[in-house]
Design a protein around this nucleic acid. Structure first.
Lengths: 123, 123
DNA sequence: GGAAGAACCCACATTTCTGTAAGTATGCCG
DNA sequence: CGGCATACTTACAGAAATGTGGGTTCTTCC
């Protein structure tokens, strides 16, 4: 019996340089303007919505809520709502998210440390 | 004598979570839709414009040229134009860019390898 | 009684990003 | 002479991302 295209695709290595590889979409989420910063802010531990908003300076409520939903759907962040009034919602990295965050932090820290070299005299 | 705000800022550690820290702008460049992919494509070595365009599937000439200029201004990529006709231009990572690319690749590879877990049954 | 607080959602306006199509220069090839 | 090739640039247009302001719910504090 022949294998379906899907079955074959399953075993092909993912490649972000390929236009239609699903990995590219996730890379996009992670490297989105606010996605990266949210991952970084959550790295040290669980935070509530308002606190997260304060850490990720400059983000609007709308973007925070929206980006969190995307990260949640990628299984990188977990949302825990406590049914009380006023609302109390916690956001944390999943184990998967934590692994990713390590890479993101490494990237961000490198930039922070090499900032002087990066912004040297632009002609 | 008192220190100017600038002098003080110079010694403050860079922080991407701070709204006006220049490191955030660079992070933005690197994590931009095409910036990341270009860095990845250049990691194995020097490429010409057209070849780069073929590797980064889906990018338009416009975006490739534009993004390359940004990365060049951040000292992450070097452009070498050979004055011949037809034009011949090479793009390569700078030593700085190569260091960054390591981090970017680590991020991308992790996503590629964990793709199955990331896209598991979305409710 | 009125205000404040939490974590949102929604409509609307605007800014920013991205793509498409066309144009530029110049020498070689047929 | 006409066309091709390379690496762009520019104008224009449509799509996508982002911000703003207002509303919601229920309870505690003054």
């Amino acid at each position: 019996m022949h294998k379906s295209l899907n079955e074959i695709a399953q075993h092909l290595p993912a490649n972000v340089l390929a236009e239609d590889c699903p990995s590219r979409a996730i890379l996009q989420h992670v490297t989105s303007r606010w996605g990266t910063l949210i991952l970084i802010a959550l790295a040290p531990g669980t935070l509530r919505f308002a606190e997260l908003r304060r850490r990720v300076q400059g983000i609007s409520e709308r973007m925070l809520a929206q980006t969190l939903q995307v990260l949640e759907s990628d299984h990188l962040v977990i949302r825990t709502a406590h049914e009380v009034v006023p609302p109390h919602v916690d956001y944390a990295l999943t184990p998967l998210g934590a692994e990713l965050a390590v890479r993101v932090l490494s990237l961000a820290h490198w930039i922070e440390e090499n900032l002087p070299a990066l912004q040297e005299a632009q002609t």
